[in-house]
Design a protein around this nucleic acid. Structure first.
Lengths: 201, 201
DNA sequence: GCATAATCCGTCCGTCCGGTCGATAATCCG
DNA sequence: CGGATTATCGACCGGACGGACGGATTATGC
């Protein structure tokens, strides 16, 4: 029983990890159960034993992925003490070396495309957005409390910061030749600073 | 021959328009040739007569769509004289009433998801991005020339403005409840202004 | 060790869908 | 008005794929 539970956890994690790799590689609309089975070193029947349908498996995979990315952001931000450093602490989003980042953007784009037509993906993204907003909102609030950020609408500002990160990331990832990492970092920093610093110099 | 040519143009436009509506409705991964045929009031064979493959038709549809959106932005910007008004002239992107906008975002998300795995969609987006950058860059350049914009890197700034528009748009469209049109407009304006106004008050 | 259950496999079936094809109708041309 | 070309239709084919099923293998409990 104890062992069974462990094996199930292992297998599910193994399958989801395989799905993650494969989806980010070939895209959600080209993925097949055979692909995932091969990647996970299991048979189709083996996967069916743990996930009752493809749809369910894919959604579970996306959930897992977004949770991982979020955790990553949280960890990184928590290492900063200064509120301004905190809102600037997401520049790891623009780093090719990071394996999670590399597989991440295709996942995000697929999720957004799905969200255009599927309510489940939509609410998944809503939650994810809200997570970022809470994180960033906390940092902004600190800055307001300590008097360095002349911001009134904390939530709106946090949402805008999050949106800017994503907008810059989209260009950076999809058009690498025209958008260098330096471009992404400097302009994200610039735009975000202006939102929290208000009209101060 | 003259008539044939005209008919061909009509049919192709009719088919592409149908594809556009259907794709934005059900998504690129759920679209079928039967769907498009029904929407275009033609048979599958009829469509095959004008487009040799599904892939080709879809790509043509996306090209057409992006061209239309771009034209729209160009037209709107050209109505403004002031450089600052020009870079702020894309707020129509955040308007539910606009039919082109309404069908537009699902199209954009689908294209981005495709671009993650298909080079054709990638270069389509590159061209589209470049179009915006050229447009916005022109406005920024005007501002620089007339001394109101203390900007050195015109292209980089234009790309950042474009990215901000898109980042804000993504949130606005995908999470309407948490991101009002007012939010989108005011924060886009704020962030973009700060980029062109530099550290001036 | 043996029965029972859990895990995992490979095959098969039904469905969906893109593309093909021959037939038919419409249009053009001489 | 015929013959040729073009336009359109809808039936059909074949491949792909998700899911179901039955069996094999392994682990567990007694």
């Amino acid at each position: 029983m104890e062992i069974n539970l462990t094996l199930e956890k292992i297998r599910k994690a193994q399958i989801i990890e395989a799905a993650l790799r494969k989806i980010s590689e070939v895209g959600i609309q080209n993925i097949t159960m055979d692909d995932i089975a091969a990647e996970a070193k299991l048979s189709k029947g083996g996967i069916a034993h743990y996930f009752s349908s493809k749809d369910l498996l894919i959604k579970e995979t996306f959930r897992e992925f977004f949770a991982a990315i979020f955790l990553r952001g949280q960890k990184t931000m928590d290492q900063c003490a200064d509120p301004l450093d905190k809102v600037h602490s997401f520049m790891w989003l623009y780093s090719w070396e990071d394996p999670l980042v590399n597989i991440g953007y295709p996942m995000l784009f697929d999720a957004m495309a799905m969200a255009g037509h599927d309510a489940d993906y939509r609410s998944l993204l809503h939650e994810w957005f809200d997570g970022w907003v809470e994180l960033l909102g906390g940092a902004v609030e600190e800055g307001v409390a300590s008097g360095v950020f002349p911001v009134t609408d904390i939530q709106g500002t946090a949402r805008a910061i999050s949106a800017i990160y994503q907008g810059v990331a989209t260009r950076w990832y999809l058009d690498k030749d025209a958008h260098s990492t330096g471009w992404a970092v400097s302009y994200a920093k610039k735009a975000i600073s202006s939102l929290v610093n208000g009209s101060k110099k």
